[in-house]
Write a protein that binds this DNA or RNA. Structure first.
Lengths: 184, 184
DNA sequence: CGGGCGATTGAAAGACTTCAATGGGTGTGG
DNA sequence: CCACACCCATTGAAGTCTTTCAATCGCCCG
């Protein structure tokens, strides 16, 4: 309570669950990102789930805030991190509100591929998602069946392939990003 | 360019549009909020549209950042504003990803009612939305027809009513929030 | 080899969208 | 002052997409 974490290794899914059990993963956090920063009266606004083994630094919220106030650089970094998270969150809204199922899955694969490459989670292909169909579904606002069928469509279009271990191989990054409506 | 705005009066819709014309409104901003803060290389990450007449203060981005670095209080306020926006954005993802059409519309009405009351936009009822069906649709990831039908359902359930001018009367706030899955 | 879990696939149902037509309100011009 | 055009919202019907329900497959583990 009153603590937040900076991830050093691993992937964390930030989510929110309704009383009836429906869950939305609102963000994926990778090494360098912070989780648990948004709270109110000691109650976290969202839940966090480790998708892989995670190594993180824990900070005491109060002390950190005090420290920030005398460290302008740190404050700037915090603003930068929050701005970036806000941009990503807006993009997720765009995906959830406007894209069709296969577009969402394509977007997701392109996004996670870029994220992992950027944060050195695993530069190897095939790409290990670290998420089951259930997590992907909860992230994209779809059911596991629809996610499965969308992956099938991308495979049949020759854009991706899967290996027996469940990992994904991106065969055509260009077309994957097009299919996922990824701007640039 | 390089400027951002703090809203003094009016409502602004922050949005993002795909090449094929699909648009998602990712946030609604009211007096006290800032818009145009998220940019990259002088290019704004999102678009802004005034839903009403708007009065705002413009800040030069560079000078503001410099000023922030010597004003810890201002930095803290900025962090607070961004945190709040991030929470709201996560909630929108939840709405878009998990709620059905009528739930989304109910959520929207409850949210906008609370927002306007809180920011003194208009304390009067009936509630003036300041948004046409088209904007509501783009905010909720629905079509104008579905929005219209959902409003009809809420009316037939006796939760809301509309007056000829198009304004909305919330007859049962309790049930509206339940229908919109609004936590508290 | 049997059980269990996650992923895939099929078929039917449901929700939302699309296309089309109608109605109400406003503003302009005759 | 009324007719008409226009815009927005509503309503109906058909179509598309996604979900739901069910069954199957493959893999790992005991």
């Amino acid at each position: 309570m009153g603590a937040f974490f900076k991830i050093r290794k691993g992937i964390v899914a930030v989510s929110h669950t309704l009383e009836d059990g429906r869950r939305q993963i609102t963000a994926l956090r990778a090494p360098g990102d912070c989780v648990g920063y948004l709270e109110k009266d000691g109650v976290y606004a969202f839940e966090g789930e480790a998708l892989t083994d995670v190594e993180a630094c824990a900070f005491d919220r109060r002390r950190f805030d005090d420290f920030v106030s005398v460290q302008p650089d740190l404050a700037a970094a915090l603003v930068e991190a929050l701005s970036s998270a806000l941009k990503q969150s807006g993009m997720l809204s765009l995906v959830l509100g406007q894209l069709r199922s296969t577009e969402r899955v394509a977007h997701f694969l392109a996004e996670i591929s870029a994220l992992y490459a950027e944060r050195h989670v695993s530069l190897a292909r095939p790409l290990t998602l670290h998420m089951g169909r259930s997590e992907i579904a909860d992230y994209l606002g779809l059911t596991i069946e629809t996610v499965s069928r969308s992956i099938g469509k991308l495979k049949s279009r020759g854009i991706i392939a899967t290996v027996e271990s469940g990992e994904v191989v991106i065969l055509d990054d260009q077309r994957l990003r097009e299919a996922g409506k990824v701007s640039r």
